[in-house]
């Protein structure tokens, strides 16, 4: 996966609570064998409204999504993370996230940041993962995830280094 180190970018705000992954990418876009090209399905139903923020020309090229609480709740579809990435989003800031979505983001180099007061008013932000700051304000992240994101690590390769431990575990099972 592509590493995430530091990002300076345009903000796109979506001030709604409980945005579920069915909204981020509706089911008809899940019938794919690929991870690519999914931005055409991103917020597909909401984008029928020309005034929706993802349709506004001023926000094209945005790379930081600022969202409401419980963002990405619901279905486990990783297509939600793939669609955001395909649109150009590299970082999502929200007060809280659905657990599976949060995981899926981390596996794809899309940094999810929990901030109690997300900066909805900001036009641009600078996110520094090594320092764990958003425009200087601190955020928390689990050290293992941080390490994988900074280095862009494929964690299957890391896990396969534990082959001896896995095999020993299996040998202990009845």
């Amino acid at each position: 996966m592509q590493p995430f180190t530091r990002l300076e970018g345009r903000v796109i705000p979506l001030d709604r609570a409980n945005v579920d992954t069915d909204q981020i990418i509706p089911k008809q876009f899940l019938k794919t064998l690929s991870r690519q090209g999914l931005s055409r399905g991103l917020f597909f139903d909401w984008r029928r409204d020309p005034a929706f923020v993802f349709n506004q020309p001023g926000y094209q090229g945005a790379s930081i999504l600022v969202a409401g609480e419980n963002f990405g709740c619901g279905s486990s579809r990783e297509h939600a993370a793939w669609a955001l990435l395909d649109f150009g989003i590299r970082c999502v800031i929200a007060p809280s996230f659905g657990d599976i979505f949060y995981n899926n983001c981390c596996k794809n180099g899309l940094l999810p940041i929990r901030l109690a007061q997300p900066p909805f008013g900001a036009e641009r932000l600078t996110v520094d993962l090594a320092r764990q700051t958003v425009d200087g304000a601190p955020f928390a992240i689990d050290p293992y995830r941080k390490h994988c994101l900074l280095e862009g690590l494929d964690d299957i390769a890391i896990t396969l280094r534990h082959e001896a431990a896995i095999a020993a575990y299996e040998a202990r099972q009845p």
Partner: peptide, 20 residues
């Protein structure tokens, strides 16, 4: 528990998952 597709691949390859 439910997992995403990257984790499905991880379980395929290792039969394990990293979990906090």
């Amino acid at each position: 528990f439910g997992i995403g597709t990257s984790e499905v691949e991880h379980v395929f390859a290792t039969q394990c998952l990293w979990q906090s």
